[in-house]
Simulated assay, not measured.
Amino acid sequence: MTELLLNLENVHTHIGLYHILQGVGFRAQRNRITLLLGRNGAGKTTTLRTIMGLWPASKGRISFAGTDIVGRSTSEISRLGIAYVPENMGIFPDLSVKENMLLAARNASRVTDIDQQRLEWIFELFPAVHQFWNRPAGKLSGGQKQMVAMARAIVEPRELLLIDEPSKGLAPAIVNNMAEAMLKLKQSGASILLVEQNLQLAREVGDDVAIIDAGRIVHTGPADECFARDDLLKTHLGLALCP
């Protein structure tokens, strides 16, 4: 049986005069990868940022592990066990990979304060983090920066990762490595809410799907059922998934 981890009910978000989310509601189960799919501008990133408290919900309820998180600060939400990997990765380019990791470890003032067993596990998931440990993060390739961003999000144990388009602009080999890392994260007990335009990657890793269109959720269900329906993909994504 699955266990509910994240629940959005009738969530509305306004940004200035714009009503972006218009009653969004869906669920993400524990220890599963939930895909949030939709066209550009449909409200995917706004949904992630609203969950994280970066943009306030103007109406509705968001609960995480049974706790209502609407109105809480981003730092409070983070401490509850949610990490966010934004589309722009959010790394500090002038700092080394090591310094980026250290900043994300709240209770560590030096690298030796970080759980070394967890750090070794992160190096196994993302070898580039270890390889470029002392290099300025801004000097890395796009794929390497993405690995640093994801590694930084899990330097401390997290129950839920919000990941926004990790494969964007990356070479196929790097995308495959990213998929493998996400599946290993799920095996370790983490849950993921993933925004992803690459439907091949989404099909490879996803367990469940929520499709958003014009600020509203128009479909939820198992990923394999969603990807078997070309009509659904064409209508709401403008795409079809080749077999």
Rank of each mutant, 00 (worst) to 15 (best):
E3F: 00
L4A: 12
L5H: 04
L6M: 09
L6R: 05
E9H: 11
V11H: 08
H12D: 14
H14P: 00
I15D: 03
L17D: 15
H19Y: 14
I20S: 02
Q22H: 09
G25N: 09
R30C: 11
R30N: 13
N31F: 02
R32M: 07
R32P: 01
I33N: 03
L35H: 07
L36A: 11
L37R: 01
G38I: 02
A42E: 05
G43P: 04
K44E: 03
K44F: 05
T45H: 03
T45A: 08
T46K: 02
L48F: 09
R49A: 05
M52Y: 13
M52R: 05
P56D: 12
P56A: 13
G60I: 12
G66W: 09
T67Y: 06
T67S: 14
D68A: 13
G71I: 07
G71R: 07
R72C: 10
S73F: 01
T74H: 10
S75E: 13
L80M: 14
G81R: 07
Y84M: 01
P86L: 06
E87F: 03
E87I: 08
N88W: 00
N88H: 14
M89V: 13
G90P: 05
I91V: 14
I91A: 07
I91K: 02
P93I: 12
L95H: 10
S96A: 10
K98F: 10
L102N: 07
R106I: 14
N107M: 12
A108M: 12
D113R: 06
D115Y: 01
Q116F: 05
R118N: 13
F126N: 02
P127Q: 11
A128N: 05
V129I: 15
V129K: 01
Q131A: 14
W133N: 08
P136S: 09
A137G: 08
G138Y: 07
G138W: 08
K139P: 00
S141P: 07
G142Q: 12
Q144L: 04
R152S: 06
E156A: 14
E156T: 15
E159M: 11
L161D: 03
L161K: 03
P166I: 03
G169P: 05
A171K: 09
A173R: 13
A173I: 15
I174V: 15
L185Y: 03
L185T: 06
K186I: 07
S188C: 06
S188W: 07
G189S: 10
S191L: 09
I192H: 00
I192T: 11
L193N: 02
L193F: 00
L193P: 03
Q197C: 05
L199E: 04
A202Y: 00
A202R: 00
A202C: 06
R203F: 11
E204T: 12
V209I: 14
A214C: 12
R216F: 07
R216M: 14
V218L: 10
T220P: 04
P222H: 14
A223K: 00
A223I: 02
D224C: 11
A228F: 01
D231F: 01
D231Y: 01
L232M: 11
K234S: 15
L237N: 10
L237H: 04
C242F: 08
C242L: 11
P243N: 13
